[in-house]
Write a protein that binds this DNA or RNA. Sequence first.
RNA 1: UCAGCUGGCUGGACGGUCGCUGUCGACGUCGGGUCGCAAGGCCCGCCGCUCGGUGGAGGAAAGUCCGGGCUCCAUGGAAGCACGGUGGCGGCUAACGGCCGCCGGGGGCGACCUCAGGGAAAGUGCCACAGAAAACAAACCGCCGUUCCCGGCUUCGGCUGGGCACGGUAAGGGUGAAACGGUGCGGUAAGAGCGCACCGCGGCGGCGGUGACGUCGCCGGCAGGGCAAACCCCACCGGGAGCAAGACCAAAUAGGGAUGGCAGCAGCAUGCGGGGCGACCCGCAUGAGGCAGGUUCGCUACCAGAUCCGCCAUCCGGGUUGGUUGCUUGAGGGCCCGCGCAAGCGGUGCUCCAGACGAAUGACCGUCGCGGAGGGAAACCUUCAGACAGAACCCGGCUUACAGGCCAGCUGACGAU
Length: 142
Amino acid sequence: MRISTLKKRSEFQRVRGGGRWSAEAFVLEGKPRLDDRIEGPRFGFTVTKKLGGAVIRNRIRRRLRAALVELANAHADPRFDYVVVARKVPAEIPYAKLRDALELAFKRVHQGSKQTRRQPSAGDRGSVGDAKSPPSKRAELD
RNA sequence: UCAGCUGGCUGGACGGUCGCUGUCGACGUCGGGUCGCAAGGCCCGCCGCUCGGUGGAGGAAAGUCCGGGCUCCAUGGAAGCACGGUGGCGGCUAACGGCCGCCGGGGGCGACCUCAGGGAAAGUGCCACAGAAAACAAACCGCCGUUCCCGGCUUCGGCUGGGCACGGUAAGGGUGAAACGGUGCGGUAAGAGCGCACCGCGGCGGCGGUGACGUCGCCGGCAGGGCAAACCCCACCGGGAGCAAGACCAAAUAGGGAUGGCAGCAGCAUGCGGGGCGACCCGCAUGAGGCAGGUUCGCUACCAGAUCCGCCAUCCGGGUUGGUUGCUUGAGGGCCCGCGCAAGCGGUGCUCCAGACGAAUGACCGUCGCGGAGGGAAACCUUCAGACAGAACCCGGCUUACAGGCCAGCUGACGAU
């Protein structure tokens, strides 16, 4: 199926306060849309420059997009907006594993869970997924 | 065969499943126009979880270092100053700081490589450390001479060692990136272009070359250390900003507020007031224009022009940051022919080759091929690796990154003929 994408910075910012699930290769955020005139789920991709050059970032986005196309019909909620934030390099992990992790992430986000699988060690910056925390200065997609 | 130099090309191939985007066609929905009484037909436009055809990243797309095209602003006429850049000569080019050929310096046996390669007798400045001395020169050691003092030897003519002082000396030592030409012979107390030969250097002239320059002859005893990627001088070149340029459509906010500076002159028109018998005169307000003034274009001066009549400067506040276009046919690429050593130029006529905008050009899988390692006599098998890197208005270059593979020409060594 064809997936529509988030375009504006404000749309990305709005999803930030919703459900959140962290996997090895990415973080999936999702939130129900207020505007019900739009049909179907929408997706946004955030791949920072920290992960590599343009070629690597393109490949990360394309693999994530391909996995979403495969799963979105069955697992995504049409009333939701989602943001996929790439963390490590998904190009390095097998595609089947990436797809399974994404499937699990959809279920967890829909449960409205704000807790994460990530342990509070390993250089974690504060509480994650707190809607009241100030928006981080991270660059959205390059 | 080995070692090497230069130039160029390439940057895995095929297939399957599922996707994205441009474009063409079909189909369908919607809208409009037109024909028709009507059913409906035809044309145009937009859209599409529809179907089919076809195109879809690079040699560097990169760094954004130069040069252009194209836009808008300044727009004008040049000058001077300032700033920035370039720097052997000739050619090529739209242009260049690029390319080609040649010259000169340096390196290599050689093919070749390399050089920011104008001026240091216009001026200023600098030359660390070391060294005696770093530039109108200069004597630390050494060498030589003379006077004096202390010795040794003596055939009493002298010879010789040491020291103080004075003088000569740039050959030698030592320092340094660099020491006031180099080598040799003569010369001298010792030395020194002091003299001579050759080399280097400078000047003049002849010849060759479009030219950089080369070469030959004569003269000069050597003047002018280096640094200009220190200032500088000379010659030449250069307006500014960039596709978030710019144009159009739609929507929205509005013709904001504060502080500071300047709001000058004369006339005209209208209205009001005052004066005069009257022509008219005076004052105020408003309006349109003129001059002056201010503002911007790097600065200055001149002429000329534009903008605004309330202007200018600074600060604060508010709104839009949607769509279409620019947008891909261009100094484009390719075949062949001619000219040129070459860069390139001319002709011919073939071809259309990405146009996205939170940003497409892909995801997954299989087979084969290339390369390294291991096993094997071989066929082959196993395993690992496959680079640098993603268009954003478009061209011409430069620079930097790059696994591997291929081709051509040339050089040196060895061997064979």
